[in-house]
Design a protein around this nucleic acid. Structure first.
Length: 105
DNA sequence: AAACTGACTTCTC
DNA sequence: GGAGAAGCCAGTT
């Protein structure tokens, strides 16, 4: 893989997101060691070399809104997948209070 | 090496 | 509550 080390870090974190939960870009950025690198995280998702291995659909915006997702169906499909996993939705936004990924407490 | 771009985040109006 | 602007990071060209 030609992906940069930072990207791989994001991919690993993304794969660590438990089923039925979602993480925000800022959250992954924080776990990666850069709380302000949310954009870099988004870049990783955009590239997403291992789509089936990297559940980018489990990554949402800071307020739980679904953004991006170049795949077919776009946000709509993404929402459907999350619903399929048991993620709680509030309209078009994910209910982070219930389905937000709690890394460690 | 410099500049541009981007699936972000937060503030202010 | 919705819209706009600024700031942040890393990767790619």
């Amino acid at each position: 893989m030609n992906q940069a080390p930072f990207f791989q870090t994001i991919y690993v974190l993304t794969r660590k997101i438990p089923k039925g939960k979602v993480a925000t870009y800022g959250q992954l950025a924080r776990l990666a060691g850069n709380p302000n690198a949310a954009r870099a995280v988004g870049a990783c998702m955009r590239i997403n070399p291992d789509a089936p291995r990297t559940p980018c659909h489990r990554v949402v915006a800071a307020d739980g809104s679904l953004t991006g997702y170049s795949a077919a169906g776009g946000i709509t499909k993404k929402k459907a997948m999350l619903l399929s996993e048991g993620v709680s939705f509030d309209g078009d936004r994910v209910d982070l209070s219930r389905s937000g990924w709690q890394v460690e407490v």
